[in-house]
């Protein structure tokens, strides 16, 4: 087994509060890792740092052996678009100003425009260089991570309330050709076939989670537990390699919790990796291969569930006296 995620000396503070204070741990590929700890221990902040939603103050996270910051860096295409737009804006403003305000001729104005274009593109390149090299700029572009298979759910469910449950699920899969406007307009047949497949996949997922009876209901109308399930289904529709689940079974009834645990174990056996924050000790102890206990932004201890249960420091900090 190899580590799919390596967290090293991760730190993040908000004002005077140090939320994550040098957390260091690994998550093994193909395992279920539980992340527990008292309120304010930094579990959710750690999740946000790993999934790219927060920029870390310091420390590194490696996913599949690659640095998160490198994974999230803008592609050369994006840089080209920005540089081009900056050049176009400066160039056209310069040209118009030369023609209208300074009263230069057409040729001279075009020349000024060309200089402006160079200036605009240069300014963009310059500020990017300064930002990256001297300012210690950190990227926060979580969508790049989701594309690489690192997906997460939210502690407080974030369903798309105006859209139906099924649409919520159909949104998730990557590289849909219909997300390109040209395909959406001109290659409708191919998009429609793809949509039909997605529709079936979404229906299967809804059936699996036992919320197929509300498939066409607006997600905003669902109950709290149903929203939790929808959130889980959405992230599974991404077909991710590593899934970060933030309290996946809070508010879900016991029978369904049982089913979900079975499902997560099946997926684990298929090669998926899970990292789960959960306060339900029964669930976390039964499900996890490894448990990481966090306290005050640091890793307190890491080990298999039986060991954690016996650990005096964990009992003091979190589990309490039985």
């Amino acid at each position: 087994m190899s580590a799919v995620l390596e967290v090293e000396d991760l730190r993040k503070s908000f004002g005077g509060i140090v939320a994550v204070d040098g957390a260091t741990f690994d998550i093994e590929s193909g395992s279920i890792t539980g992340l527990i700890g008292p309120n304010g221990a930094g579990k959710t902040t750690t999740f946000n740092l790993i999934s790219g939603f927060y920029e870390p103050d310091s420390g590194t996270v490696r996913y599949d052996g690659r640095e998160l910051q490198a994974l999230m860096a803008p592609s050369s295409d994006e840089r080209l678009v920005w540089g081009g737009a900056s050049g176009l804006t400066f160039g056209s403003l310069g040209g118009v100003a030369a023609f209208g305000l300074a009263g230069l001729g057409t040729a001279a104005s075009l020349g000024v425009g060309a200089v402006g274009t160079g200036l605009g593109a240069g300014l963009y390149v310059g500020q990017e260089t300064v930002k990256q090299a001297y300012d210690g700029h950190k990227n926060s572009r979580p969508f790049m991570l989701a594309r690489e298979g690192l997906a997460r759910t939210f502690q407080i469910t974030r369903e798309l309330g105006d859209m139906t449950a099924r649409e919520n699920l159909m949104l998730a899969p990557q590289a849909q050709s219909g997300e390109n406007l040209v395909n959406a307009w001109l290659r409708r047949g191919a998009v429609a076939r793809e949509e039909a497949d997605l529709y079936d996949r979404a229906t299967e997922m809804l059936e699996l989670l036992e919320i197929d009876h509300v498939a066409d209901e607006r997600a905003g109308n669902l109950s709290g537990g149903q929203r939790k399930l929808l959130e889980l289904g959405r992230v599974l529709m991404l077909d991710p390699q590593l899934v970060l689940l933030d309290e996946p079974v809070a508010g879900v009834n016991p029978a369904l919790t049982e089913k979900l645990m079975d499902r997560i174990e099946t997926l684990r056996d298929e090669g998926y990796t899970f990292c789960i924050v959960e306060h339900d000790m029964e669930v976390i102890m039964n499900l996890s291969d490894t448990i990481i206990v966090m306290n005050e932004g640091k890793k307190l201890v890491q080990g298999p569930p039986e060991e954690i249960r016996q650990n005096q420091r964990v009992v003091d900090a979190y589990l309490g006296v039985d």
Partner: peptide, 28 residues
């Protein structure tokens, strides 16, 4: 055409919650 395509679905999702769109691998 736009609203009923997957593109329109992403637009609606952006309207609802950009963070969700981000977490699903799409740049709002």
């Amino acid at each position: 055409l736009t609203a009923r395509s997957p593109f329109g679905r992403v637009l609606r999702a952006v309207r609802n919650d950009e963070d969700v769109v981000r977490s699903l691998g799409k740049d709002p």
